[in-house]
Design a protein around this nucleic acid. Structure first.
Lengths: 146, 146
DNA sequence: TATAATAATGAGAACCATAATCATTTAGGC
DNA sequence: GCCTAAATGATTATGGTTCTCATTATTATA
């Protein structure tokens, strides 16, 4: 994903809702697009520094979430991490380190993804639950923590 | 899982760590074993009432977690839900309702589970990540919220 | 069975991530 | 350039969770 193209897509998506793509919001989107996994407000704040104050950061993440530019993830206690929505960042799954809590993205092939989707369909097929998305979270230890 | 058998297993597991299986802790284990999905401290407290005060409830959950009798789940913002560990409650996956936040357990067949494990192994195979567990979280809408 | 030592309890305070408030600043449409 | 609406940022409030500490209960030992 080329950055200028990303900015265009985000800007256009926000424009549909009459939401402005301001400098602070650009910073947040850029930080998330540079990251190799979901990031929490605190982690983003550490990285961005006083450029984007915490209160603005939280609001920006909320704005980006309702615009579906960003999706929240809840893999560690008490903290919400965000990453670019699938239509911007691609479909992938997560390796969650049970030792340090870091979350890493991992891609699959289309073939694997189809097999996974088949499993999900089989599981939900007999229930009255209507699936909108699935997430395969793999827990274990990352290279650093072994 | 018969209840008396569950109590015996929990009691024995706690005994190994010289941790007592007190009345309050029994109440929490029973509530979790009755539930059809993970439950938060608040939800358990609503159900148990003043029988188990909140501060004791949180401590009990922490104790049960380190004893590996209970596992935490993080599928909605800011709240941790617990359920019996797999060796007590069986392996299953979750249907997470994006509307009301409720989480429902769903079982799979061994055959489906093997196919899922194969996918997980393929995904982690080329990485330096060492898998210890996986969780397939299916998001969507539960019957009530459709 | 008394007693000592250790663990568990419960009320309350503290903590931390996140949300809400509100006065001020900024940006787009005329 | 002005006017209106949106965005910002400092601050305060909230809610889930953890910590503290004095009290109570349980187990081990005499």
């Amino acid at each position: 994903m080329v950055k200028s193209s990303l900015d265009k897509q985000v800007s256009s998506r926000l424009g549909e809702d009459d939401v402005r793509y301001t400098a602070g919001r650009r910073e947040v989107v850029r930080a998330l697009s540079d990251a190799d996994g979901p990031r929490s407000a605190t982690e983003l704040s550490d990285q961005l520094g006083p450029l984007v104050p915490l209160s603005s950061l939280y609001r920006t993440l909320a704005v980006l979430e309702v615009a579906e530019i960003v999706t929240p993830h809840f893999s560690s206690p008490g903290v919400t991490r965000y990453e670019l929505a699938e239509w911007l960042g691609g479909h992938h799954h997560h390796l969650v380190c049970v030792a340090c809590g870091q979350v890493e993205d991992v891609e699959t092939t289309d073939e694997v993804e189809m097999r996974l989707q088949a499993i999900v369909t089989e599981i939900t097929g007999r229930s009255s639950f209507i699936e909108s998305n699935h997430a395969l979270e793999i827990e274990g230890k990352c290279q650093k923590c072994q």
